[in-house]
Simulated assay, not measured.
Amino acid sequence: MDRRLTPATDRVALDSLRGVVQRPDYTPGQPARLAVPLADLRAAPDGARDRQLLFGADLTVIERRGDWAFVQAALDGYCGWLRAGTLTEEMPRITHRLSAPASHVYGQPDFKRDERQLLSLGARLSVQGTDGRFAHLATGGYVPLQHISDSPATDPVAVAETLLGTPYLWGGNSRSGIDCSGLVQAALTACDIACPGDTDLQRRAFPQVDQIQRGDLLFWPGHVAMAASADLMIHATAWQMAVIWEPIADAIARIDAAGEGPLLGIHRPDQRLKTRSG
């Protein structure tokens, strides 16, 4: 079973895995939510980063071990360890998402006052009211109304374009740093299209097609890009350490010349697949 998608540690597994995996103990899990702007999801306590979680992410806690918690993300089923202090059991109804590449949470509804937090595209918000040009969050603080939405975006490429120039970060999922699969997941999730977190999982999730159209995904070994047209793509690349546009033909030739090819195929996200985390 894939470690990344298996809600079990060496000690405890979710009740749903009884009879599937053998563990000393099983649990129904404890609902929780990420209460900080960004948290690394790690392969082991204090281990390497696999992915990142954004503010408001819904989680199931499977095991707590000291300062760490092993969780499964509702969005895509990804499992891993994060700092237990980043979690809260307070889970007001999610009403909005951050639709801007990034925004600040202010202590007062005034952009001249000090900011408290920096949120990234896709953060999930509970808005309890408005005050002038700001949304008042149930979790505390104020976010500019221009930066939030209560409905999905409609064009994943346009969403990805808002992250142009974002620095490349292995396992990154935020405006502060993002990798190739993180960019694809952010763009599709903003449009309420379900998408796994890693490149190999994304390639298996979507059907292969022969002709490139806008929104299709192009896969190489360990890399993915999103087509803006039959000739142009957008991707987060360690080659330039940023999110960039690149002609598709140039990318194919460059990656092949570097010995990192070949192009494995073109896959089309299924817009009927809705996210598991509303």
Rank of each mutant, 00 (worst) to 15 (best):
Q30C: 11
Q30P: 00
Q30I: 14
Q30S: 13
P31H: 00
P31D: 02
A32P: 00
R33L: 07
L34R: 10
L34Q: 06
L34Y: 07
L34F: 09
A35C: 09
A35R: 12
V36K: 07
V36L: 02
V36A: 03
P37E: 11
L38S: 05
A39I: 04
D40Q: 12
L41I: 04
L41N: 04
L41V: 07
L41M: 07
L41F: 09
R42M: 08
R42D: 10
R42N: 10
R42Y: 07
A43K: 12
P45N: 03
P45E: 00
G47P: 07
G47H: 06
G47T: 05
A48T: 14
A48W: 07
A48Y: 07
R49Y: 01
R49D: 01
D50Q: 15
R51P: 03
Q52C: 12
Q52L: 08
Q52I: 12
L53M: 11
L54R: 14
L54E: 11
F55D: 10
G56Y: 03
A57N: 13
A57I: 05
D58W: 12
D58L: 15
D58A: 15
D58I: 09
L59A: 10
L59W: 06
T60E: 15
T60A: 13
V61R: 03
V61H: 11
I62F: 08
I62Q: 06
R64S: 08
R64P: 00
G66N: 02
D67L: 10
F70A: 07
F70H: 13
V71I: 08
V71F: 01
A73Q: 11
A73L: 10
A74W: 10
L75H: 02
L75P: 00
